[in-house]
Amino acid sequence: MQLVDQAKVKSRMQTRLKQNKVLKGVFFGTTIFALVVLVILLYRILTQGIGYLDLQFFQNFASRFPEKAGIKAAFFGSLWLMAVIAPVSLIIGVGTAIYLEEYAKKNRFTTFIQINISNLAGVPSIVFGLLGLTVFVRMLEMGRSVLAGGLTMSLLILPIIVVAAQEAVRSVPKELREASYAMGATKWQTIKKVVLPAAIPGILTGGILALSRAIGETAPLLMIGALTFVAYLPENLLSGFTVMPIQIFNWTSRPQTEFHDVAAAGIIVLLAMLLIMNSIAVLIRNKFSKRL
């Protein structure tokens, strides 16, 4: 008597194996989809924009004529904005992280701050724009300035920096701290001379990534009224300004297709800048990840 019907088992096994094979292909296809889109996107933008990408493009201000349009004001506007965002968000963000990791007691207030930060990370960027419009532009009377834009963006990326800095501070081994205390150092001396130097690569990596997020943001700055047609460079913190994403938005929303090519050229500059910043972040991460 045969207990197992060999033929039946074989056929069932085969369909199951076949199903596995087919679906493996399907899952692989879904993974590749994202890659294909990325390639198409980059290819399109490169072929469209490369023709307008010359030295003149960096030297000219915005113009009604596509062949004369340049990104000078937006490029320097983005640099000005970075100069405000980087110190403000890093100081507040790292301060918050050190407080939460080193000083805060485990009580309700600390939990509240922590939950608050993770919720803040989920607030749409345009809502931060509304906040900036009311508080910085109107209440504090900063006007539609670099300062108002920079402070708004600093608040926007604050949660990202805090989380990154917290992780960096947390990953400093306890032994280092204890050794420092054993040598008679106080808490702040330990943080300043032991914890922070050890955590700085992680903080910088997170900070640069957050900054690159800020450089690509458009909506909050549109809200606080960064201008879309600027033919001058910012002179001080209270100057009006424009940034690259807004300039790109302006070119994209024009009906003439020539301006779409100009927008593509602007996108190439923006992406190149982001690529450089991300590469620096990766370099820092790789260079320092072996220590400790």
Binding site: A34, L38, Q48, G216, T218, P245, I248, F249, A263, L274
Partner: peptide, 20 residues
Amino acid sequence: ILEVLAGIPTIVYGFFALTF
């Protein structure tokens, strides 16, 4: 590669939607 895709500014995606 997925991280790169996540890091592309949304205005670039907007441009891609409209023109491609």
